[in-house]
Design a protein around this nucleic acid. Sequence first.
DNA 1: GATGCGTGGAA
DNA 2: TTTCCAAGCAT
Length: 246
Amino acid sequence: MSPKKFQNAVLNWFDQYGRTNLPWQQSINPYRVWISEIMLQQTQVSTVIPYFERFMHSYPTVDALAAAPLDEVLHHWTGLGYYARARNLHKTAQLVSSELSGQFPDNVPQLIELPGIGRSTAGAISSIAFKNQATILDGNVKRVLARFSATDGWPGKSAVVEKLWLIAETYTPFKRIADYTQAMMDLGATLCTRSSPNCEQCPLMKDCKAFKQGNPQDYPGKKPKKKLPVRTTCFLMIKNSDGPCC
DNA sequence: GATGCGTGGAA
DNA sequence: TTTCCAAGCAT
């Protein structure tokens, strides 16, 4: 499937079924996109929403966040987990506020330098907030692309995730980049879900390799379980039993 | 390249 | 009840 066809399929689907009412999609700016992306790391949308609302109420701008004491910021984070995110958030706010005149960088290389912002979050901020041609690869997109391309292996392995990055980049469009980024996440979140994906409604169904194989649930590959040491001898004897317990 | 980091929800 | 994660990143 050509990138052009892929993009059109995804964007046409987004125009009909994409999410547009999430709190961070209202009055989009780099600060709001950044906060939402950090909160959403390894954290579900329904959990994040009330935290995002309270956070924005208390800290409407990056300067307001930078001026707040760290313990107050951490208090706003209580219950969200991964508290290093909040510390990095505060550190980055102070950095942007005092050294970058309150302006976030608009490109991936500079965004990645900021504490708490990695490759995917940088791609999200650059594409959604600045409309730059940048690529994301979060859990949703990994799932969509692993299935579409039937890429084997657990994405925790660097070789696997690098394959997925390459695929993600080849399909990233130059136009409607913000919609496309959101669309890929929406596909993963609403149709191409971890269990029982709704393939019949998916705009990529006809070209999805995993669907054609009939095993979308096998992608992405799972983390290999660690083998427990084999017990060669059992010393425990159960009372009144004839042999060892195992 | 493997781990640790938090909490809540689904299988 | 237990296990496996869910819009990743830093070390």
